[in-house]
Design a binder for these strands. Structure first.
Lengths: 337, 337
DNA sequence: GTTAGCACTCTCGCCCCGAGAGTGCTAACA
DNA sequence: TGTTAGCACTCTCGGGGCGAGAGTGCTAAC
């Protein structure tokens, strides 16, 4: 059982260790954290905490470091979140409004801001519809006599393009008509649907364009856009002082590897913030890592914001900041519509 | 003066050092590279090479390593390029045809392939027109009663999008007409041109859409798409064994920092391959790095392929591979049109 | 001009060792 | 029974010393 005093000590151990990255000694807690018991008492309590699995020992004559259970308990019941202050909120919103451009620039900027705010790697994904991506609109643009550019606007607002060769040359006006014909037929089609409808078309160019559209829709389904920043800052943390570990971290944080990590939280609701700590991670080669993750957007079209770092993470800072950024993005997304 | 024998020795020093990453001793050259003189003679020649600035000494009792001048001489006149063999060509083209999707996937795959082929970081940029980006086509897609999606197709085939609020609601058909009106006016406009023409429009929504188009065109001018891969493999090289150096490399190879590096070669012609070695680099914090860089495409629309790595680089492998990939991309780009 | 020989230099890995930090335990105390 | 002082014990860490090994530069002979 975790008595109140032991809980206090556990909390202090976590805080101290997160701050200093050095094993925490009983003496350090008494001296620097103002516990009004002697270090011997703290030692006794620490021994109990160790028995119960909340903290561990790197070696006999070293201080204690939190175990994953220790962090979990801390996050769950001991920690007081450090709210995002008015000043910081201003800075963040100000930075967010710096960018004039499209959604991509905005997402990439968000990753940068979040990474800066928490000092770890931040990952942001573009909002996606949960349903299979459907077509919203097609457009054909004349490039030259025998090629046109097919542009598909998807229901989540993303664009896909492809060059389509034309059997018979067509003017822009004719292309426009073809696009109108296809839009009428393929409205809100998904991949297989579009493919089926394409088969019915008699005109060769209509049919090949419809097939190209079907391919675009299918490609779009699988494609996820991920924005990542903060790698080089995160690597400055002492856990990566060893070059092997650093190399490992770089390889691990390649965006395509993070996908699976983030997909695990796809079922979270907007507003909910999840924390996955060390051994709780599905991938067992990520035992030394933690993720704080939140979804933003509507249930129909949602994206992910996450912070990835070593288990020794300032959870009380990270969690509210991930939550804040996620809510901000949800809001901005709604404003856009 | 670089006598023939000294040139041979310099060449062997470069090759040996590139291979082993260890300072090269006179004995090693005689034993492992089959020089038919004694190590003492090699030592004498090495001393001369050092006087002339082609090689250096880390410390008294260590072997020699090439200086930047040594590498430069090697690349310029001593090296025999290692051609891309038929088998390797097949592998590369095969990999390149793996991807079905759009240009982005294709560029990103190219970076991966090149990085794999040379074991260093590879960077690929999307082809851009040298002239200021001009508009090819506008399209409006209805999203809801008071918002439309404006899609601009630029003359280099890239797309830009933006949401435009509508003063008066419009059907898709009406939006189509508006797009046609604007296309007629803004055909091939650049940013300022579009802005000027927008001012003449009387209809509020026409005008605001035209202004949005002008913004899209201006954004597009500055935007460059860069694809990078091979970081974690490159970091395995012994020059990054020290965590500080590794960290430095990670920070340095952030895509946005590479931009300036690559822009230096924007004036190169397709087919030409440039090599910039260590101190020849404009940025003086990149003294330990080399870049092999080539342009691909037409003079009107060209992109960049590059390999970035430590000065100790297998130039005879890297240069022909960068050249090969660049020519391949040029070809594929032409086929696409 | 080439080469054998040799003294000299510098690095690198290893061991050793003492200082320091922390713990666990015991015994005394409230 | 809980708390605390005291102390022995353990483990890490950094520095110094040292010998082996690798290479060079120089000299003298060929």
């Amino acid at each position: 059982m975790l008595t109140e005093r032991r809980a206090t000590i556990l909390g202090l151990v976590v805080r101290e260790y997160v701050q200093t990255a050095e094993p925490v000694s009983s003496k350090a807690l008494v001296d620097r954290r103002g516990l009004d018991v002697s270090s011997a008492t703290v030692r006794n309590e620490m021994a109990r905490l160790e028995d119960e699995g909340y903290i561990t020992h790197p070696h006999t004559s070293a201080g204690r470091i939190p175990s994953d259970l220790g962090y979990r308990t801390y996050v769950q019941s001991l920690m007081a979140e450090e709210p995002v202050g008015a000043e910081e909120q201003r800075t963040i919103t100000h930075q967010l409004h710096q960018v004039g451009g499209g959604l991509e620039d905005w997402l990439s900027l968000t990753a940068t801001i979040l990474a800066g705010a928490v000092g770890n790697v931040a990952v942001v994904t573009r909002p996606r519809t949960v349903t299979a991506g459907r077509l919203r609109h097609l457009q054909l643009v004349e490039l030259n006599a025998d090629t046109a550019l097919l542009v598909a606007v998807m229901d989540d607002g993303r664009l896909r393009q492809r060059l389509v060769p034309l059997r018979t040359p067509a003017t822009q006006a004719e292309l426009q008509e073809r696009a109108a014909r296809l839009n009428a037929r393929l409205a809100a089609a998904d991949g297989p649907g579009a493919r089926a409808l394409a088969a019915d078309l008699v005109d060769v160019d209509d049919a090949s364009t419809a097939r190209a559209a079907a391919e675009l829709i299918e490609e779009h389904r699988g494609a996820e856009e991920t924005y990542l920043d903060g790698l080089s800052r995160a690597l400055r943390q002492p856990e990566f002082a060893d070059p092997d570990r650093m190399l490992d971290a770089v390889a691990r944080l390649q965006t395509y590897r993070l996908r699976t990590l983030l997909e695990g939280a796809a079922d979270a609701l907007p507003g909910e913030t999840r924390v996955v700590i060390g051994s709780e991670m599905a991938a067992d080669e990520m035992q030394d890592w933690s993720v704080v993750i939140a979804r933003y957007g509507d249930p129909e079209s949602a994206g992910t914001v996450a912070v990835v770092g070593p288990t020794r993470m300032a959870y009380e800072r990270t969690i509210p900041r991930v939550r804040y950024i996620a809510s901000l993005m949800g809001q901005l997304l709604r404003d856009m519509r």
